[in-house]
Design a protein around this nucleic acid. Structure first.
Lengths: 243, 243
DNA sequence: CAGTGGTCTAGACCACAAG
DNA sequence: TTGTGGTCTAGACCACTGA
């Protein structure tokens, strides 16, 4: 019964079922009781039982099939939530002072490479930015960014020497879709100079493409000294990553 | 009005509200109509309106406060779902043939380093595995793994020359928690020999610690040639990553 | 065809926090 | 104090799908 008296009714039922699944009492493939039976067993209405099963299904712990019932799912893909923080917040959480230098800011016609990176049509103009984020006095991360001036025209006249482009953009284009790409590269001459690391040192590179409601917004590449930086992602079954 | 006629009632309402938020019609901080008003406006019951708002809140698009109402949230952390696939599936999705070589398999007392990696107490025994995953004939990824024999005793007598350890484990310890760590490293002598890449070439390294219901299960380090491999993560606001 | 999940309702009570 | 979200119910109809 795992009777826990805390929380709401359906969260208690949820915890009970989760325990049975995660502990292996109900192995993958096992059929759960029907909604009606759960409702009787826990003394609740069918809607409440349904809510619990729906939540378990959303979390990927069970699979529901009409006419057959609900079954404990086979664990498949290892999915994990990767939190890509704001760099300033990231630095400050290390108890280091944060600073950034704007190293370059230039508006220009989009080159072929730009258009591919930003998913643009010909003739578009972009703002090309480079800035260095510092933790304490050490270089922390090099940011190379393109901003689509067709979508975010105000960027052309913005002052990025005080406000980092990332923070500025989030206030202009609050909600957007993004695609991240994580790779390892050897430091080029430019990178090694900027980050003050040896030539060819391994670097962790995160590229992000961002789209807003009105089209492509920005492409940005963050380059971190590889041995000093790690991305961490956790996975906890049953907890919806969004929760 | 974004009126879409497909799907259920609450999914249509959801799409409508999502559109207003994502397009900026309702900017961050804007107060949404109350549940009762939404119910009236869409001609549904309050429960249905509640379901929609609850879902928006779970997705992080709105924030709900008692007595005050529901508000469009400030976009904060860039969270993305990182899918860490099974290596065999990953290779096959590239239309390449998959193979792996078991290069080492040795049971031993856990060293101090092992105990730290696997979160073990003294005196534990581990199985130390090394295997190379191939795509076509080229090395694709080197897997270095420790398995906690106190938790998964059957591993000691398992045959890993046919079944890759990852696939074997998932059938034994179906549901587990995991922590991933992603870094860039220069190839050591061992790595460069195994992956057939130059010494000090940049490598993408993914480390995973896994816990089951009965304790630490395994620690694994995947090393990929950095310039040939990328992790991709997507983020779509409004969609729950678990969905 | 029958039983399951999917959805929706109209109404209810409660806890909580803002005014 | 009062209005809001949070939760729960008993019952209903539908769509799908497996037997």
């Amino acid at each position: 019964m795992t009777s826990e008296k805390d929380g709401t009714l359906h969260s208690r039922i949820l915890a009970d079922l989760e325990g049975k699944i995660l502990s292996g009492t109900w192995p993958p493939g096992h059929r759960l009781p029907f909604e009606v039976d759960l409702a009787v067993h826990y003394g609740c209405s069918r809607m409440t039982a349904n809510k619990v099963l729906t939540q378990l299904a959303r979390a990927g712990l069970i699979e529901r099939r009409k006419k057959s019932g609900s079954f404990v799912a086979q664990p498949v893909a290892q999915a994990a939530v990767l939190e890509i923080h704001d760099i300033e917040a990231e630095v400050r959480s290390l108890n280091l002072s944060y600073a950034f230098d704007l190293k370059q800011q230039k508006a220009r016609k989009a080159s072929a490479a730009d258009r591919q990176r930003l998913d643009l049509s010909a003739g578009a103009t972009v703002l090309d930015l480079t800035c260095l984020h510092r933790a304490g006095t050490r270089p922390f991360c090099l940011e190379q960014r393109l901003i689509n001036l067709d979508t975010v025209a105000e960027a052309a006249s913005a002052d990025f020497s005080k406000t980092a482009p990332g923070a500025w953009l989030i206030s202009r284009v609050p909600w957007n879709a993004a695609e991240h790409r994580i790779q390892a590269f050897s430091a080029s001459a430019e990178i090694s100079a900027a980050l003050e690391i040896p030539r060819n040192a391994a670097c962790l590179v995160i590229e992000r493409r961002t789209w807003g409601a009105s089209g492509p917004v920005t492409f940005v590449r963050f380059t971190y000294p590889g041995d000093r930086h790690a991305l961490v992602a956790r996975f906890q079954p049953g907890e919806s990553p969004a929760g």
